[in-house]
Lab assay of single mutants.
Amino acid sequence: KYSDMIVAAIQAEKNRAGSSRQSIQKYIKSHYKVGENADSQIKLSIKRLVTTGVLKQTKGVGASGSFRLA
């Protein structure tokens, strides 16, 4: 599940300011076997996790910027 992968990526990075979408994508692609549409799936999952309150956006708008666990 992409949401689990995103949470794992943010936990692994341990950046106080949060993790960027690009760094999350890079982590997921190197640690998991994902399909061609992974980028758009990650983007959608990040937006969903922010609206449900699992992630907090520290910089930027939408799916860009930095995110950390709430």
Results as ranks from 00 to 15, higher is better:
Ala8Leu: 05
Phe67Trp: 06
Ser23His: 06
Asn15Phe: 05
Leu55Thr: 05
Ala8Asn: 05
Tyr27His: 03
Ser23Gln: 09
Ser3Asn: 10
Tyr27Val: 00
Glu36Asn: 13
His31Glu: 02
Tyr2Leu: 09
Ala9Gln: 01
Glu36Asp: 10
Lys47Tyr: 11
Glu13Phe: 09
Gln25Asn: 08
Ala38Ile: 13
Ser45Trp: 15
Arg68His: 09
Ile24His: 02
Lys26Cys: 09
Ile6Cys: 03
Val54Ala: 04
Lys14Phe: 07
Lys1Ala: 10
Gly35Val: 04
Gly65Asp: 14
Lys14Thr: 08
Ile6Arg: 00
Lys56Ser: 08
Gly65Phe: 14
Ser23Trp: 14
Val34Gly: 02
Asp39Trp: 09
Asn37Phe: 07
Gln57Ala: 10
Ile28Gln: 01
Ala70Phe: 07
Ala8Cys: 13
Ala70Trp: 06
Gln41Asp: 09
Lys26Tyr: 07
Ser30Glu: 12
Ala63Leu: 11
Leu55Ser: 01
Arg48Phe: 14
Tyr32Asp: 00
Gly60Asp: 05
Lys33Leu: 09
Ile6Pro: 00
Arg16Thr: 10
Val61Gly: 12
Lys14Val: 06
Ile46Glu: 01
Val7Thr: 04
Val61Asn: 11
Val50Lys: 00
Ala8Tyr: 05
Asn15Thr: 06
Lys56Phe: 11
Glu13Ile: 13
Leu55Trp: 01
Glu36Arg: 14
Glu36Phe: 09
Ala38Thr: 04
Ser40His: 13
Glu13Gly: 11
Ala63Val: 11
Ser3Cys: 15
Ile24Asp: 01
Arg21Thr: 15
Leu69Pro: 03
Gly18Ile: 03
Leu55Arg: 02
Ser23Glu: 09
Ala63Tyr: 08
Ser20Trp: 04
Lys29Thr: 07
Thr52Glu: 12
His31Gln: 04
Ile46Phe: 03
Ile42Asp: 00
Met5Ala: 03
Val61Leu: 09
Gly65Arg: 13
Asn37Lys: 08
Tyr2Gln: 00
Gln41Gly: 05
Ile46Gly: 00
Ala70Ser: 08
Leu44Cys: 15
His31Asn: 08
Gly60Trp: 07
Met5Trp: 12
Gln57Val: 14
Gly62Ser: 07
Tyr32Arg: 02
Leu55Phe: 01
Tyr32Phe: 13
Arg68Tyr: 14
Lys59Gln: 08
Val54Gly: 01
Ser19Thr: 07
Val54Met: 05
Arg21Lys: 07
Ser3Met: 12
Tyr32Ser: 02
Tyr32Ile: 03
Ala8Phe: 05
Leu49Phe: 02
Val61Asp: 12
Ser19Asn: 02
Gln57Trp: 15
Gly62Lys: 06
Glu36Val: 12
Asn15Met: 05
Val61Ile: 11
Ile28Asp: 00
Ala38Pro: 04
Arg48Thr: 08
Val7Lys: 06
Lys33Pro: 10
Tyr32Asn: 02
Gly65His: 13
Ile10Lys: 02
Lys59Thr: 08
Lys59Arg: 10
Ser66Leu: 15
Lys33Cys: 11
Ile46Ser: 00
Gln41Tyr: 12
Asp4Phe: 14
Lys1Pro: 09
Asn15Tyr: 06
Met5Asn: 01
Thr51Ile: 14
Ala63Pro: 07
Gly65Met: 14
Gln41Val: 08
Gln57His: 11
Arg68Ile: 14
Gly53Val: 03
Ser30Ala: 12
Ser23Ile: 04
Ala38Gly: 04
Gln25Tyr: 11
